[in-house]
Structure formats: C-alpha cells, structure tokens
Amino acid sequence: MDTSLLLAFCLALGAMLYSTVGHGGASAYLALMALFGLPPAVMKPTALVLNLLVAGLGSLRYLRAGQFRWRTLWPFLVGAMPFAVAGGAIHLPADLYKPLVGIVLLLSAVRLLWPREIRAMHESRDPPIWLAIAIGAGIGLLSGLTGTGGGIFLSPLLLFLGWSMPKPLTGVASLFILANSAAGLLGNLASVGRLPAELPLYAGAVLLGGLAGTTLGIRLEAPLILKALGLVLVVAGVKLLGLF
C-alpha cells in the first residue's frame, strides 16, 4: 500500500477515536506523522488544519444533538484564545514540556478508567469565571506550544472538578478545540506554507473518521464516553512521553 494512503487510513482511525469524545485528534495526528517520517516543520500546521476540520464537524453535530453548554465554555475561551496565538508563535525544545504533560495525561487516564465513580456523572456546577479564564489562558498557551487544540487538557479538568457532565462535555470540547486550533494556526501563519501536497487526502480521511466518531459520541452512554476519553488520554500521554 502507498505510504500516503496508509497514513490517511491511520489518521482516519485516530479521528474516529478522538471525535467520539469531542476531540479533534491533533496529538494522534502528530504521533502518526512522526512515525511516518514527515518533517517536523510540516507536522504542526498539518495537525492544526486536520484538527480544525474534525473539531468543526464535531461542533456542528454535538450542537445539533444538544450536547453542549455555553456557560461552561466561554470563560475558558476568553482566556485561551489570545494565549494560543502567542503559543503558536513560540518554538520550544520538546523536552521542556512533553514528559511532564505526558505524565499528567496518563494520570488523568488512570482516574477515568478507574472503576470508582466520578461525581460529574450525575451533577455539575458552573466554574468560577475568573478561575476558568485563568485556566483557559494556561491551556491556550500549552496547546499553542504543542500544536494541539487543548481538549486533552480541558476535558479531564472539567470532569474532575465537577464542572461538566460527560454528554455536554463533548460539545464543549469540540468548540473549544475549534477556536483554539484556529488561534494557534493564526499565531504561526507562516507555517501554512509547509502544508503537504497530500493534505486533501488526509483531510478527507479525518472527516470520514470524524463522522463515524461523532455518531458514536452521540449514541454512547456517559460511562462509555468516560472510558473512551480515558483511552484517548492514554494514547496522547504515551505519544508525548515518546514511548511510540
């Protein structure tokens, strides 16, 4: 099989898994492109563009399904977007942040996959606006630096602090990732010139994967959404730790 077709197939699988929980899949795309030997300069803008497509599809479908809450989202967006632009313009050595973030994601995954019930399964409360803006700023900067949409950081935080139930979390995460990915790409517009010629193939693949994943996300019950999110965090954490 042609290498580009094989990568496109793998990207579609990544999009399907991530979009099930409202994520765009950037961390999976970065891992896959690294495995297939794409140049680092190409990986970040490509991951953000694919993230925009899948998160846009997810936002539309989860909004139409009623799986969303604006009050949960907007304070995080206010803090995140300007810092995502700033983070997108900064280039740091990967070894400064990847191991730490990978460990945090794996610890979050363990908690989600643990049999003990999470309070947000049954009730949630609104996050304090000032705190959500501050947290959003940190997530925005981190997502801009890493070339991701920030959903892998936001979703477990909302659950663990009891600020969102699993179903509306999918729509909140999708819209957050959509806005944050656009901001991150805006912060490094020059990188768009490095997009690969195979981008239309990859875009079609992730949209098909996203269509399948969002269909699952709309139909799955809350406990299964948590397990799927835990699996997503394992994949992202292992990738950031450089274990594959």
Rank of each mutant, 00 (worst) to 15 (best):
L5P: 07
F9Q: 00
A12G: 15
L13F: 13
L13R: 11
G14A: 10
Y18S: 15
Y18E: 09
L30D: 00
L32P: 09
A34Y: 10
L38H: 09
L38Y: 14
L38A: 11
P40F: 13
V42N: 13
A55H: 07
A55W: 11
G56V: 04
G58W: 13
Y62P: 14
A65G: 06
Q67Y: 15
L73Q: 06
P75C: 02
V78D: 11
M81Q: 13
V85P: 00
A86D: 00
G88P: 06
I90Y: 01
H91G: 05
P93T: 04
A94D: 13
Y97W: 09
Y97E: 03
I103C: 05
A109N: 03
L112M: 12
P115A: 02
E117F: 07
I118Y: 04
M121A: 04
H122M: 05
H122N: 06
R125L: 07
R125C: 07
P127W: 01
P128F: 00
W130L: 11
T148F: 01
L154G: 11
P156G: 10
P156A: 03
P156I: 04
L158H: 07
W163I: 08
T170E: 04
V172S: 10
S174A: 15
F176Y: 14
A182I: 10
L186N: 01
G187V: 02
S191T: 12
G193A: 15
R194Y: 03
E198K: 00
Y202L: 14
A205C: 04
A205E: 03
L208A: 14
G213M: 08
G213E: 02
T215Y: 14
L216K: 05
L220R: 07
G230F: 04
G230C: 05
L231C: 08
V232L: 07
V235T: 12
L243A: 10
